[in-house]
């Protein structure tokens, strides 16, 4: 089920990557084994796999937050040895600073880099407004709902126009309706004005198919890439597409792949 990538050189190039956790006392855990993955500029890739298969570990290594035990990761041809300079990262929990307003949490992207946030104020306000948070910019995180908080976290990861956006189950903790809403908001944010390069971890089939240009399916531990599925639906994805035959067909195909590779059943 190899999907032929475009001819251009990939932005992120992963070759024979493996990761073994071998901390004293905890025993050896082989988290990832011989991962090969190419991600092109402007591509939205969803990593779909069961819990514990190493999705978060893979994301940490690709972003340079963690280092591999074997294999290489290249960004635009250069080996990745430190956290990527121009990336955005959204974690499962929003990790907002409780004592900063929504706006200041977004601008934290600049203050943490030692840059002056003031020139980016207007852009941050526009970004917040684009995800339905106009009027909430001066609210503190504890005054916002879980979904609103995660939107702020997404704005924070996008405000500096990162080269790559990493998202690790960002909607795992929000309710189903909010999640659908956030999915379509995210699809819009990541395809307009130009397509962004995104690596999105999830264990929700619908979410993966709805968001991605390509769904990458991982096996249970040790995590390997067992299948890839190109999703040809037009972008940005609209909520009503979830009812369309094309969408349902892709979801069914995804489920079949998961079945074939023993993710849903031995």
């Amino acid at each position: 089920m190899e999907v032929s990538g475009s001819a251009a050189a990939p932005l992120l190039d992963v070759e024979q990557l493996s990761k073994v956790f071998d901390a004293a006392g905890t025993g050896r855990v082989e988290a990832l084994a011989s991962i090969d993955l190419r991600i092109h500029e402007g591509e939205f890739v969803a990593l779909l796999g069961p819990s514990g298969c190493g999705k978060s570990t893979l994301l940490s290594i690709l972003s340079g937050l963690d280092s591999p035990s074997g294999g290489t990761v290249r960004l635009a041809g250069e080996p990745v040895t430190a956290p990527l300079a121009q990336m955005g990262f959204v974690f499962q929990r929003d990790l907002l600073l409780e004592w900063r307003t929504a706006l200041d949490n977004v601008l934290m992207q600049f203050t943490m880099r030692g840059a002056d946030p003031r020139p980016h104020r207007d852009a941050a306000l526009r970004l917040l407004a684009s995800v339905g948070l106009a009027g909430f910019e001066d609210k503190y995180p504890w005054q916002l709902s879980g979904g609103m908080r995660q939107r702020v976290a997404i704005c924070r990861a996008l405000i500096h126009e990162p080269q790559v956006l990493f998202m690790d189950e960002p909607f795992g903790a929000v309710d189903a309706l909010t999640r659908e809403r956030l999915n379509s908001d995210l699809s819009t944010l990541c395809s307009e004005p130009e397509a962004k390069t995104v690596l999105f971890v999830t264990h929700d089939i619908d979410e993966a198919v709805f968001l991605a240009d390509r769904v990458v399916i991982m096996s249970p531990r040790p995590g390997r890439i067992v299948a890839e599925q190109a999703i040809g639906l037009p972008k940005p994805r609209r909520p009503e597409m979830r009812g369309h035959d094309e969408f349902l067909h892709e979801v069914a195909r995804s489920r079949e792949l998961l079945l074939d590779h023993g993710v849903l059943r031995d």
Partner: peptide
């Protein structure tokens, strides 16, 4: 929270 440290590193913080 160790995730806060990861967040900081992801934002290139010293």
């Amino acid at each position: 929270d160790p995730d806060m440290v990861r967040l900081g590193r992801a934002m290139g913080a010293s």
